[in-house]
Design a protein around this nucleic acid. Structure first.
Length: 595
RNA sequence: GGUCCAUUAGCUCAACUGGAUAGAGCAGCUGCCUUCUAAGCAGCAGGUUUCAGGUUCGAGUCCUGAAUGGAUCACCA
């Protein structure tokens, strides 16, 4: 493919050697700032030792030589130590034509690298909430970005289907449920099970309060409350596969899975394989035992197993409880190993998990390394910030969570409101309109959550956060719809979108900038893949859309008298639509053809 | 207390990994629908990049220290 930057660098290299008598070495260009004329800038400071002259003078000499020798350079100017190069219009036309012959431009061919990306990872005792939305959109998007970068990706989730928390829901259902099913209650299964988790907590708190009132210290009361002891007993029974407990567990989990499946479908995310902790925690236990045998871990008198990481600057960490049951870390060890057994070709795996678990993953990767797994070096914790509400942190027990299903429904309703207010639904069937509201509502939500650097926390204000103007999903979707309408018109008028023949076309600045942006698509994907950051794609697609809208307002398309200019503009429109559509798909966002 | 993360315009975020006069969106103010979709475009206004030092041609970016906010250091997950 023809890229201006690479060719320009080659030309600069030649010119530099010709003018200063020796090669420049490493050359990197940066886009010229908007205030200055030109497209690409060479910073002269690093080369002064070689040019043996002042920055301005060096820039002048080099610029002059380039203008004379390089077909790419139409003009130049030097400001302080910055050499700004103006690229010839013929080069932009060439780039446009070249991009136009590669429908997949920006995406890389398969590299043979395989990765696993984990996201979502819900507990089966709570419905999905706003935090899961950020997690899912982030993980799904990173998977898409890696694929576009040539990596084969396996999207997985680990379902936290065992542990004391599940027993809490089960116990509460046994005690207070009267055999209630989701069908009877008329609610989703995940919501039903979540309700019993809350019920457990209420009962637990009451019992603690009772014990404290009768004179027991709080700390002791928390351990001695009958209902928590029952839950612990239930976990032991579950690990022994007690038939009654096991059947109940399977039934309640199935309710939850059905509920999750519906939510994932609405969200537009999917997985290639599911892992269940109930199936991997035993392997974790074995590995811990092996570690004890090899002297990597140690057992205390009470039977609990620990790893000492003080030499690495961390703490001691529990790996198996005194009663022999496993903890979170045990399970994660087992799961990681299981995955590399299932997919021997994966190079590494990415865990999309909130930053509250930074420490946990640091420890996990260290332990895996100590156990002798070389791939531990390629495990990466994709850590992201919490989503806070104006009222503060979301707490499921206090009922301050924003439910994922509810929020998405609200988004659809808001999208409908906006669309109706703008009077833009004529010509749509009811079904089409409904689909549009979902596309727009979800697009707004996903874009809002993904445009921010993953590490940063997000403040989500339901009243104000979601907008449909400016740097938003719908703005970009709107730009796409506009272009589709242009392309439809072009087809009606019989404008061919094959190739601009006239390489001496006179372009407008917005056209040059637009093509320059389009040519950066591939770099942006690489960068986003390296940083695991959908925000880079979001920012980029916004810029592309913004530049296009400027173009759209400044220049006529079908009223353009010169047919070659007209063709350039139609092809440019087509390429922008392609970048928007494919870029947004990397964020998991669909774009409508009409809105 | 130890460790990790964050702090940029009133608000939400950028800044191409050390480059020029720190940019967008929202909110506010001015204009633009008789030409291809005004969910748009053009413009005005808005900054001591939390603070104090240091490194160098050059620092929002790197180093040291401090402040503020958050997370974590559980026989919770």
């Amino acid at each position: 493919m023809f890229t201006i930057v690479d060719n320009l660098i080659a030309d600069i290299d030649r010119a530099f050697t010709a003018v200063f008598g020796q090669p420049a070495g490493e050359i990197s260009l940066q886009p010229t700032r908007k205030e200055f004329p030109g497209h690409y800038t060479l910073v002269m400071f690093p080369y002064l030792r070689l040019t043996k002259s002042k920055p301005e003078e060096s820039g002048q000499l080099l610029g002059e030589k380039l203008q004379a020798d390089s077909t790419l350079v139409k003009g130049y100017n030097v400001v302080k130590g910055f050499l700004n190069l103006e690229v010839a219009d013929s080069a932009w036309v060439q780039v446009l034509n070249d991009l136009n012959t590669h429908p997949d431009f920006g995406f890389k061919p398969a590299s043979g690298v395989e990765m696993m990306v984990e996201f979502s990872s819900p507990n089966t005792n709570k419905p999905l909430h706003l935090g899961h939305l950020r997690n899912n959109f982030l993980g799904y998007s990173v998977a898409k970005i890696l694929e576009a970068n040539g990596t084969r990706v396996h999207k997985v989730q680990i379902i936290n289907d065992r542990g004391i928390h599940i027993c809490k829901s089960m116990l509460a259902w046994q005690k207070f449920g009267n055999g209630e099913t989701p069908e009877q209650a008329g609610i989703k299964g995940d919501k039903l099970v979540g309700n019993y988790y809350v019920k457990f907590d209420q009962e637990y708190k009451q019992q603690i309060a009772g014990l404290v009132a009768s004179g027991m210290p709080r700390e002791e009361a928390e351990k001695e409350a009958p209902i928590i002891k029952e839950a612990q007993a239930m976990l032991l029974k579950w690990e022994e596969k007690d038939p009654e407990i096991y059947t109940l567990w399977q039934q309640m989990n199935q309710w939850v899975y059905d509920g999750f499946a519906a939510t994932y479908q609405t969200m537009g995310v999917s997985f290639d394989k599911l892992y269940y902790e109930s199936e991997t925690y035993l392997l974790g236990k074995d590995e811990v035992q092996k570690g004890v045998d090899e002297g990597i871990f140690y057992r205390q008198e009470d039977g609990s197993v620990w790893v000492d990481l003080t030499a690495e600057g961390l703490d001691r960490k529990l790996l198996l409880r005194a009663d022999g049951t496993s903890v979170y870390m045990t399970q994660d060890i087992g799961t990681a190993i299981q995955r590399f057994r299932d997919f021997p070709k994966i190079h590494g795996q990415i865990y999309t998990v909130g930053n509250e678990q930074d420490y946990h993953f640091k420890v996990l990767f260290l332990i895996l390394k100590k156990l002798g797994y070389a791939w531990a070096a390629h495990c990466y914790h994709l850590s992201y910030g919490m989503v806070d509400l104006p009222s503060g942190k979301m707490k499921s027990r206090e009922g301050t969570v924003v439910d994922a299903d509810d929020l998405m429904q609200e988004m659809f309703a808001t999208a409908e409101e906006h669309t109706r207010a703008l009077g833009k639904i004529e010509g749509f069937t009811g079904e089409e309109a409904g689909r549009l509201y979902k596309t727009l509502g979800l697009g707004a939500l996903k874009y809002f959550l993904l445009r921010v650097d993953p590490r940063k926390r997000i403040l989500f204000d339901p009243q104000e956060s979601i907008q449909f103007q400016g740097n938003t999903g719908p703005f970009i979707q709107y730009t796409h719809a506009r272009i589709v309408s242009i392309l439809t018109r072009a087809e009606e008028l019989g404008v061919a979108v094959d190739k601009v023949q006239d390489t001496d076309l006179q372009l407008a600045e917005t056209e040059r900038e637009g093509v320059k942006l389009l040519a950066e698509f591939g770099h942006k994907i690489t960068e986003a893949a390296q940083e695991y950051s959908p925000a880079i794609i979001a920012q980029y697609v916004f810029e592309v859309a913004k530049e296009y809208n400027r173009f759209y307002a400044e220049l006529p398309i079908f009223n353009e008298p010169n047919p070659e200019n007209l063709k350039f503009r139609v092809i440019y429109s087509k390429l922008v639509a392609s970048v928007i559509k494919r870029g947004m798909s990397l964020l998991g966002i669909e774009v409508p053809d009409q809105m």
